[in-house]
């Protein structure tokens, strides 16, 4: 039964022994150990955080550069588009102008031709009138030189005239 009865001497020695062990370990083992563990935990956490931040920075840089690239591309496309449009408009204008110019030239030419022709026809008419007058004068002169012929003409004309 005395197995179950604590010996006072053993209690005293184990109390002193455990207390001294505890005090020494607390100061010289657990304190540096726990502090060291905490420091290491912190440094690892910090390193992880730094890595995370760096990763974020890199991805931000990446997106920024991508954005810049996209902007540049858009700018380029815009410039090309504008140039194309400008070229188009310039060409259209030129074409339009040329057309108009052509039309104008043609119509002017046509006008000139018409007036020239009218003048020429007028001239021809005048000349034909003068020529026919001269020809009829010469014919009359020659016809009426013979008095028989004059008689015949008078008669013919009188025959043609029917008095009714």
């Amino acid at each position: 039964m005395d197995l179950l009865i604590p010996e006072f001497g053993t209690i005293i020695w184990s109390f002193i022994g455990f207390l001294i062990t505890f005090l020494i370990l607390a100061k010289f083992a657990w304190k540096p150990l726990l502090k060291g563990l905490k420091e290491r935990d912190n440094s690892i956490a910090q390193a992880l955080q730094a890595a995370e931040a760096a990763k974020r920075d890199v991805s931000q840089l990446h997106t920024e550069s991508e954005k810049l690239l996209a902007e540049a591309k858009a700018e380029r496309d815009k410039i090309i588009q504008e140039a194309r449009e400008f070229k188009e408009s310039v060409m259209n204008n030129a074409r339009e102008q040329a057309k108009q110019e052509g039309h104008k030239l043609i119509s002017e030419a046509r006008e000139a031709i018409r007036s020239e022709r009218a003048a020429a026809i007028q001239d021809i008419k005048n000349q034909v009138a003068e020529l026919s007058v001269a020809i009829s004068e010469k014919i009359l002169v020659r016809e009426l030189a013979d008095p028989a012929k004059q008689q015949e003409l008078i008669e013919k004309t009188l025959n043609e005239l029917k008095f009714n």
Partner: peptide, 21 residues
Amino acid sequence: SIFLILLIFLNVGKAYRKNPL
């Protein structure tokens, strides 16, 4: 056992004191 425990853990404690990282 106290001697053994002190031997083990003071040694360990020293390592942490020197360079915890």
